[in-house]
Simulated assay, not measured.
Amino acid sequence: MASIEEARASFDRFDADKDGLVTAEEYKRAMAEMGDPYVTVPVAETLIAQRDTDEDGMMSFEEFWNALRKE
């Protein structure tokens, strides 16, 4: 498991506008920048939904961190 500092750094790569939430578009863009241009918005929406405990359609750091701790 990653440390909370490592998790925050990873989350920040996805949170392009630094509002504390990752949207499907931000997720897609970050994955493309990291070398995976095949992640589409619908795929990103599905991946976010798996971690989105408050069902707002976005992933917060808390949701991201909780998902990492369960792995």
Rank of each mutant, 00 (worst) to 15 (best):
E5C: 04
E5T: 14
E6L: 13
A7Y: 04
A7L: 15
A7K: 15
A7C: 09
A7N: 03
A7W: 05
A7V: 04
A7T: 03
A9I: 05
A9N: 10
S10Y: 08
S10N: 13
D12I: 03
D12S: 15
D12N: 15
R13A: 10
R13T: 07
R13H: 09
R13V: 12
A16G: 04
A16M: 13
A16V: 13
D17M: 01
D17R: 02
D17G: 00
D17F: 00
K18S: 06
K18T: 02
D19Y: 01
D19N: 15
D19S: 05
G20T: 01
G20W: 02
G20S: 01
G20A: 02
G20C: 02
V22C: 00
V22N: 00
V22G: 00
T23P: 02
T23M: 07
T23W: 07
A24P: 03
A24S: 10
E25F: 08
E25K: 12
E25D: 11
E26V: 03
E26R: 05
Y27R: 07
K28H: 11
K28W: 06
K28C: 14
R29Y: 11
R29F: 09
R29L: 12
R29V: 11
A30T: 14
A30H: 04
A30L: 11
M31N: 11
M31S: 13
A32T: 14
A32Q: 12
E33Y: 09
E33I: 07
M34Y: 12
G35A: 14
G35M: 14
G35S: 12
Y38W: 07
Y38S: 13
Y38K: 12
Y38H: 12
Y38M: 11
V39F: 08
V39N: 08
V39E: 09
T40C: 05
T40K: 04
V41C: 07
P42W: 04
P42E: 05
P42K: 04
V43F: 09
V43I: 10
V43C: 06
V43R: 07
V43K: 09
V43D: 07
A44V: 08
A44Y: 06
A44S: 10
A44T: 05
E45P: 01
E45T: 05
E45V: 04
T46L: 08
T46F: 06
T46C: 04
T46H: 10
L47I: 11
L47W: 06
I48N: 01
I48G: 00
I48S: 00
I48V: 01
A49E: 02
Q50R: 13
R51K: 15
R51T: 13
R51W: 06
R51V: 15
D52M: 08
T53C: 11
T53Y: 12
T53D: 12
T53S: 15
T53K: 15
D54H: 13
D54T: 13
D54P: 03
E55A: 12
D56A: 08
G57T: 06
M58N: 12
M58Y: 09
M58E: 10
S60L: 08
S60F: 06
S60W: 06
S60M: 06
F61L: 02
F61N: 01
F61T: 00
F61S: 01
